[in-house]
């Protein structure tokens, strides 16, 4: 069974076994506008919770995407190089950014669940 959690910085993380997939939320892609480029980390890099793991760019904006939890990058979404618009079309599916082998599953407990995140976004309007 997979668990999905969210951050207040608008990243999502979905855990399947030991590997977690990370991306940005639908709310985030709407705020950013048309994505033109995604800078992904190298496979093998260790990322720290709350620190930059990727950069996502639109024409007039650049956003750092933070790692929701610590871990090692085991895979990055190569498809984004050719088609960065995947982030707009399917942010929580095909528009994923990186897969992490996470260090501590317990770290996920500190993140928001779907309902809490939804409520958080509504509060931003």
């Amino acid at each position: 069974m997979s668990i999905i959690k969210f951050t207040k910085d608008h990243e999502w993380i979905k855990l399947d076994g030991e590997v977690a997939t990370v991306g940005i939320t639908d709310y985030a892609q709407q705020q950013l506008g048309d994505v033109v480029f995604v800078e992904l980390p190298e496979v093998g890099r260790n990322v720290v919770a709350g620190k930059e793991a990727a950069v996502v760019e639109s024409v007039k904006a650049a956003s750092e995407v933070y790692a929701p939890v610590a871990g090692d990058v085991v895979e990055v979404n190569e498809a984004l190089a050719d088609d960065p618009a995947l982030v707009n079309r399917d942010p929580q599916g095909e528009g994923w950014f990186v897969k992490l082998r996470i260090e501590n599953q317990g770290d996920l407990d500190d993140l928001l669940d779907e309902a809490a995140y939804k409520e958080y976004c509504e509060g931003l309007h």
Binding site: F37, E57, S58, V59, K60, A61, A62
Partner: peptide
């Protein structure tokens, strides 16, 4: 490719 530049990226 203006996201490289100071008016968007500022200190980065």
């Amino acid at each position: 490719l203006s996201t490289r530049e100071q008016h968007i990226r500022r200190e980065k």
